[in-house]
Design a protein around this nucleic acid. Structure first.
Length: 282
DNA sequence: GCATTACCCTGAAAGC
DNA sequence: TGCTTTCAGGGTAATG
């Protein structure tokens, strides 16, 4: 399940082999992802274009490209649940659920492919000048690894919401990039219950939460992400952060917090599983 | 504003 | 063994 650390790892693995390359052709499967993929728009924007950068914002991958005919472009991609970008040779067998193929120049692997079994992902392209106003990017909140994500900002934001912390932290319009795994882990580190109301988080607890969010994300990036089933980076490498999880997916097992004798519980909030230790998360 | 539910989709796991 | 059902989840939309 790609969340911020997994998307960051993908961006880092794509960058050295993609930046500076020219796109020569684009093919799509014709099947809709979360939204339909506009093959004509992708071709018009990208064929003949050079990739200038690959960055992450929240859970989105942003590919900047400059086209001699179409000008500066931004490809906005989301991996959904099972999306993967993989490099392949042009004549390599096309694996099932491949929805986009970007033929590249001959200075490296000839194709970048997007593979997504569940088709919850997304690929769109916008002129760079208007991309910030797109449906995807215009609604994103603060990226938790950016300087704008401060303790003061988090305290102020918490005070404006009566929702429970689980829903609050998953809201991409407030904090962009956290998903189910890292919300569970961050709350565990901060010793806060996922059921706690956001506006009832004390100043000290907000400080802990801020540090916990940064810590779980940075640890996972160092571990190249969490791989449960589908997630691999653009080199096909699995992450190892699943071994570092304290609560996610550990229902019924002993809490791993030092000195805690609690048992990890699973509850459902907003249709999503929350894993937490009721003994030390309050 | 917020909670709840359904939907999109496939594959793995559970149940029979 | 083999079929059917259930579940997982990010984001969006409809409904209450």
């Amino acid at each position: 399940m790609p969340e911020l650390p997994e998307v960051e790892t993908v961006a880092r693995s794509l960058r050295p082999r993609l930046v500076g390359r020219e796109v020569q052709a684009v093919e799509t499967s014709g099947l809709a992802l979360r939204r339909p993929v506009d093959q004509r728009a992708l071709r018009k924007a990208l064929v003949g274009a050079r990739v200038d950068s690959v960055v992450r914002r929240g859970k989105y991958l942003l590919f900047a490209a400059s086209s001699p005919t179409a000008g500066a472009q931004l490809v906005v991609a989301h991996l959904g649940m099972t999306g993967r970008f993989v490099f392949a040779d042009h004549d390599a067998p096309v694996e099932p659920h491949t929805h986009a193929r970007f033929l590249l120049d001959d200075k490296g692997p000839r194709e970048l492919r997007y593979v997504d079994a569940r088709r919850f992902g997304q690929i769109a392209v916008y002129p760079a000048a208007t991309a910030e106003r797109s449906d995807e990017l215009s609604v994103l909140g603060v990226d938790p690894l950016e300087p704008a994500f401060t303790v003061a900002w988090l305290r102020a934001e918490l005070a404006t919401s009566r929702r429970d912390l689980k829903s609050f932290l998953l809201d991409q319009g407030r904090i962009a990039g956290l998903g189910n795994i890292y919300v569970c882990e961050a709350l565990h580190h901060a010793r806060l219950s996922p059921r706690r109301r956001a506006d009832r988080v004390t100043s000290d607890a907000a400080l802990r939460l801020h540090a916990a969010i940064r810590e779980v994300l940075e640890t996972s990036i160092a571990n190249r992400g969490t791989s449960f089933s589908d997630y691999v980076d653009a080199d096909g490498e699995l992450g190892s952060n699943q071994e570092a999880l304290f609560v996610y997916g550990r229902e019924g097992e002993r809490c791993r917090a030092p000195g805690c004798r609690g048992t990890v519980r699973r509850i459902v909030q907003g249709g999503r599983s929350s894993f937490f230790c009721p003994v030390h998360q309050r």
